[in-house]
Design a protein around this nucleic acid. Structure first.
Lengths: 215, 215
DNA sequence: ACCAAAGCGGACCGCACGGTCATGTTGGGG
DNA sequence: CCCCAACATGACCGTGCGGTCCGCTTTGGT
């Protein structure tokens, strides 16, 4: 389901090394963020630095391959939940899965939060994720458990926000994000006589070009 | 009120250059984050690179000086609001000021969010901020407009979270954070029969040492 | 068993960064 | 006006990064 970025090689040692590399990179990115060096990843995988660039044309390509995998999983989870019985708990479970993904993977947070360094495919995946979230939110809205003016884009944005709220506590209290997820859920739940002060964003901007203008 | 990190120099050209440097660094850090190079800051200030290190012993020192200034302002705002008439709107205004600070300054987000690279003085300032937030929250709680199990630490954490929620929209919709601030406020507001699933964090960890373990 | 092609590895390149230093310049007290 | 201490400067250094390249090894078809 997740189209790999580069073609998968034919020789046995190559496919084995590719697996080792993907696993090592996923672990290192998750633990240390996008700043880990290619050398460290290669070392962890037990291969030479050159081998990394044989399998992935650049560091960005490697990063994108892993991010796409994770986004694909979340997308599948969300799609499955679209046909769940209770729309309210379905939305809740989707958000829990999303926040947990952010919490577990530091690079994931950094990539999603800074669209400037995003691959086109990653942006597409996020767009599809937004669609799924839109569906889940619409169902919950129809059931009346969610405010009428809350959108799927809101939900996706909140995932990153909740993770970031609990981030400083992550080491000492790894489960604290559940507290802030509930807080957010209570915020988007139907409340009498309350409205949000700013119109819902129509869509995620394609590539905000970061805040950096050309130097 | 804000104790500068290094002693302020005596000669007139030195004090002028120090001002230029602080202004340039503040602008650059706000716009591009902590990653801006000393060279770029010096260029913007119209001085040589060496001059930067004459005034601040390291890049971290310069960064800390600016962060302390901003934290001081927010601290003053919060302290003033402690004696405001309506505790509910006081808390709201404090949070609005806090989020706006995050939104305006990229380096501020990065420093607050990654305690590993924090100066001791910065951590102290954040602690004092937490105390002020505790006071504001307690007042609002006594008035009954805020959940009994929401703490000042929650409020401080939410500031960063709200900014991060709206971050991807910042370029296209700079005011979107107000939407998510309201959402968070609705979340922490008194609601019948709802409770948070995770106990309130007692305090911010002092220095979570990042997620990086020694290499 | 052989061999071409595919894969591997690590020395190597160019670059940008934070920080230092020797040299030249300037301000302001006497 | 003079002089020296305080200051400014940019060439320079060490380091670590992403990415390249070429000689060697392994694989798998014949």
């Amino acid at each position: 389901m997740t189209g790999t970025t580069s073609a998968v090689p034919s020789r046995s040692d190559a496919v084995r090394n590719r697996r080792l590399l993907l696993d090592a990179a996923a672990a290192m990115f998750a633990e240390h963020g996008v700043e880990v060096s290619i050398g460290e990843i290669a070392q962890r995988a037990g291969v030479g630095k050159g081998t990394v660039f044989r399998h992935f044309s650049s560091k960005d390509e490697l990063l994108a391959a892993i991010m796409l995998g994770m986004l694909g999983e979340l997308l599948d989870t969300g799609t499955a939940l679209l046909t769940a019985d209770d729309p309210g708990t379905a939305l809740r479970e989707f958000m829990a899965a999303g926040v947990e993904l952010f919490v577990r993977d530091r690079a994931f947070c950094e990539v999603i939060g800074r669209p400037s360094l995003q691959h086109a495919e990653v942006r597409d995946a996020i767009d599809r994720l937004r669609d799924v979230a839109e569906g889940l939110t619409a169902r919950a809205r129809h059931q009346g458990v969610v405010r009428p003016d809350v959108t799927g884009t809101d939900v996706v944005l909140l995932l990153a926000g909740i993770q970031h709220t609990a981030a400083p506590l992550l080491v000492t209290e790894p489960q604290a994000w559940r507290r802030y997820l509930q807080l957010a859920l209570d915020g988007i739940t139907t409340q009498t006589g309350r409205s949000l002060p700013y119109p819902p964003p129509s869509r995620l901007p394609l590539a905000p070009a970061d805040t950096d203008q050309a130097r």
